[in-house]
Design a protein around this nucleic acid. Structure first.
Lengths: 255, 255
DNA sequence: TTAAATGTTCCGGAAAGTCGAACGACTTGC
DNA sequence: GCAAGTCGTTCGACTTTCCGGAACATTTAA
């Protein structure tokens, strides 16, 4: 059982990355701890760890193995691969400075939202970076802005693959409701998020598109519910974001 | 032949990561291109790519495979694992703002220097991030500052493992000369770099140590030769850096 | 000092990854 | 508009190589 989709996959690679992920979650582990956790012989764990150490994807200190910075190298390379992403970084900084709130740029990958850049204005607290973190795409303003600009088939695909899990009691979990919301977003040009992934937090999101209409990501600004109200929430921020996204699209087009 | 150190290493993991590295270098590849490059059957490449795709470490678009943002997630987690690193980030920003030059924080991993944070002051050009990039540790100011605070055995080990490759004509490639320079650095408290990795660029570096004297990394400020001279290079910047490193060490101690 | 972990090495057996062939779907060029 | 070439995908047989267990060395605890 449970060999449904496993046809022709490389099991050794799966365990290698399972090890990496465990090391990340646990913030470092010892050899036998890892072997126990994985349910493999110590000798097996040893062989895998030695390999990852040799390849320099893992470090070892006093018998404790941790993920290495080579992941940062590959990740950073991936993030700054296209000029578009680098240009987005500037806009995120501008938005944070101008609004004094937190702003971020998110892209879609494997049906999820991934934080590429985040900047916190003076007013916002400087939290953990969260860069690279994944989040259900339907539960963020930026994510919905992206979703609204994908083809219906792709949207279906993502919903099928990821479902619509609830992060708070305000998360949209009904597919029908999501579709109508996406239509509104397309009309209006921007998306909103009212405590759908974190209670007490609201956000506005706008898509960033290539010339052909394909979304490459989305910008968003988020802040506490008590500040995000009325004109600010309904006009000022949406207009600021739409203008910024437009500038960004032009920058990308002529880069 | 060439099986000297390969005893007991997982070959499949090696090829999996060789694929990832190729995808990174080439900025994306097609299946058969990759198979050709690796010297394996198309079916083998296919199986590996499907696996990496399923695990979400790789993305695919119109038949082009690229590295995925999961590497960013793991890398970012690795970078911000300890409070110490996060605190270093602030100091890097302070230094860039104050000097208006480029400042960076570097750590040692597998005998190499790795850029963890970089900030460019208003005066410096905003280049590619280079975060996560590796560099021979003896060819940077920050690297030498770290090296000078390691045990003699560890220094030997690193030199044996990595050698002393020349990046410019000014790089220190003589082991004897390096040892005497490291002694000077220990005396003086800070290190310098005069066009040893990039011609036209000078830098000053200072170690950042835990209470027990173990270096966790080093701060440095770099700029063009024509600006980095006289009092600025010999007094002002060294003192600024030493003060900043000291603050940082205290912050780390009480965090 | 004993006892109980942990890390390391080695070997046989079995699971797995590799290759090549063969197919359909697209391109390219004549 | 057809043929030759390329690309991605699937399948089965061979054999590489990966896994587990045991035995030894090493450290930590009692």
């Amino acid at each position: 059982m449970a060999e449904n989709q496993d046809r022709g996959r490389v099991k050794t690679t799966e365990t290698a990355f399972r090890i990496v992920e465990l090391l990340m979650e646990r913030d470092g582990m010892r050899l036998s701890e890892l072997a126990r956790e994985l349910g493999v012989a110590k000798s097996t764990a040893h062989r895998h760890l030695s390999t990852l150490l040799d390849l320099e994807y893992v470090t070892e200190n006093n018998g404790v193995y941790r993920t290495g910075l080579r992941f940062l190298e590959i990740g950073e390379q991936t993030r700054t691969r296209t000029d578009a992403y680098r240009l987005a970084e500037e806009k995120v900084a501008d938005l944070a400075a101008e609004t004094e709130e937190r702003s971020q740029f998110i892209v879609e990958e494997h049906g999820q939202g991934v934080y590429l850049f985040r900047e916190t204005g003076d007013r916002a607290v400087h939290t953990d970076s969260e860069i690279g973190k994944r989040i259900p795409i339907h539960a963020t303003a930026a994510g919905k802005a992206i979703l609204a600009n994908l083809s219906d088939e792709r949207i279906e695909e993502i919903i099928d693959q990821r479902g619509l899990p609830a992060l708070t009691e305000h998360t949209t979990t009904d597919e029908e409701a999501l579709w109508t919301e996406l239509a509104e977003i397309r009309d209006r040009g921007y998306s909103t998020n009212d405590q759908e992934n974190t209670s007490g937090l609201r956000a506005i999101g706008v898509p960033v598109r290539y010339e052909d209409g394909e979304p490459l990501g989305a910008l968003s600004v988020s802040g506490p519910t008590h500040r995000f109200q009325k004109t600010l929430f309904n006009e000022t921020l949406p207009n600021l974001l739409l203008g910024t996204a437009n500038e960004l699209e032009l920058n990308i087009q002529y880069s």
